[in-house]
Structure formats: C-alpha cells, structure tokens
Design a protein around this nucleic acid. Structure first.
Length: 238
DNA sequence: AATTTATTCAACCGCAGTTTG
DNA sequence: TCAAACTGCGGTTGAATAAAT
C-alpha cells in the first residue's frame, strides 16, 4: 500500500517538481529561511509563500527523516497524542526529523484507526460539540478545542487563546493559560476508556498548567507497556 | 483483465497570532 | 492605535496507488 509509492511520478497538479525544489533549496540556503512571501519573486518560483514555506519545512530542509516510523517514534506519538491531542507541531518537535504534517498524516492513517473509538470524527460524535452543526464546531480553528485527552474551552478564557508565538517543539503547551487563572474550564475526557465518558470541569486552573507539559509527560514515568495498558491500547505494528 | 473500493500522503485552505509601518 | 502583511498551525482535499471484487 504505502510501499514503492515513489516508483513513478507523473506530473501531478500542484506537485512540486524537482527543479522547483532545487530552486527553492538553493534560494533558502543562500538567503536563509523566512520572507516566504518574497521567495517566489526573488527566486522565480511560481509558488506562493505559504507553499514555499511548507515545501521547505516538510521536505527540503536539512535533517528531514523520511520513511516509515520506527516503533519508538510510533510509541512516542501515541503517548504524546494522549497528552497533547492534535498538537502536531508540538509532537513533531519531539521527533527529530519528522514534520507536523507527517505526524498528522501518520496518526490519521495508521494510529487513529487503532483507537477504540476510531477516527476523530467518531470521537467528536460523542461529545458536546457535535450536537448539531458539527462541521462548524469541530473543524478549523474552532474556539472550543476538543482533544482526545484534554480540551480547553477558550471561550471561557477572557484572554487570548495564545498570547505568544507557538513554539514548535517547545514545552509551553499550557503556558498561555498561565496568564489568567480566574475562569478556566478544562474538559478532560477519556476516550480510551471504553465506558468512561465523564467530563471534568475545573473552575480553577489546575496545577498542571504551571508545569512544563513535557516534563510532566516524562514525569508520569510510564513505561511503554504501562502506558498502553492505561490507554487500553496495544502496541501493534502497522 | 477490468473495474471498483480503500488507503496514503503531499499540498492546499482558512483561520488566528504576530509583526510592521 | 490600527490595518495590512506575514507566518504558522490544524483540518481537509484529491490524485496516485494498492487491494479487492
């Protein structure tokens, strides 16, 4: 299925061509990253800045790791997704050489289906935000973020969702929430527990928010086996 | 062998946060 | 202070390919 997908590459609409890659690579190596909006003008590429940035970030930048995820990487994705939800850039930040897009795709195609509740759409179908207009509330940057493990209702947050730059691979998942402790509601769900659909709402910001999420994550001290047992999941190769 | 269905993943889209003038 | 431009993110799409019929 996923093997030998590169054997033949007929021209595909909007797919980057090797010569385009070369131009972009040389340009970035010469001028550095950033200023993506001007790349197409300066380099002659007929691509938008966002497309150039994405191509560089996901395929051209140094130290990109291609190919199958190792068991260790897969385990880490599962564990981190339990903690972080769909924070793909954060998860990818802990996987050297892997991109958020790759992690996201891998989750959606390989791991999500293994979840007892199936794909995210099924997960969402079970929660409050999917009552009626699910497409509005679950897609894009909806104000209510629902993750398998942790969701943060930012509408109840008087401050901005994030007051700082999202730091790729950083440890500041909950840091933005530290700015105001007055009225946060955390809906914590446990989709991996087949019978548990409980929702916990904290009126006060939990202590967890003050901790480095990854230090916390590591501090759980899970071994992989224990972690899977807790998740009700099994470590199964694709 | 031909057709249909399922899967994968690169790329795009829209939104929100940040920066700049 | 504000608006426009830029940047980065997660969700979604759709072509290519594999598998099933």
């Amino acid at each position: 299925m996923e093997n030998n997908r590169v054997k033949k590459q007929p021209p595909k609409k909007n797919l980057w061509k090797p010569e385009e890659d070369l131009i972009l690579k040389k340009y970035v190596e010469a001028h550095g990253e950033g200023n993506w909006a001007t790349v197409s003008q300066q380099s002659g590429l007929k691509r938008g800045g966002k497309s150039c940035r994405l191509r560089w970030k996901n395929y051209l930048r140094p130290n990109i790791k291609r190919g199958r995820m190792s068991q260790e990487e897969e385990d880490l994705i599962i564990r981190m997704h339990k903690l972080l939800g769909n924070r793909w850039s954060l998860i990818a930040g802990r996987l050297p050489g892997r991109t958020d897009n790759e992690v996201k795709n891998y989750w959606n195609t390989h791991l999500n289906k293994r979840s007892p509740l199936g794909k995210r759409k099924h997960v969402d179908s079970n929660d409050h935000q999917n009552d009626t207009n699910s497409t509005e509330t679950t897609n894009k940057k909806s104000k209510i973020h629902t993750y398998p493990m942790l969701s943060i209702d930012t509408q109840k947050n008087p401050t901005k969702e994030s007051n700082g730059k999202k730091e790729e691979g950083s440890t500041s998942l909950l840091n933005p929430l530290m700015t105001d402790t007055k009225s946060f509601n955390y809906d914590i769900e446990s989709p991996f527990m087949a019978t548990n659909t409980s929702t916990f709402v904290f009126d006060d910001e939990p202590l967890i928010a003050y901790m480095d999420s990854f230090a916390l994550f590591e501090g759980f001290g899970y071994t992989q086996g224990e972690n899977y047992a807790e998740l009700g999941m099994q470590s199964v190769s694709p």
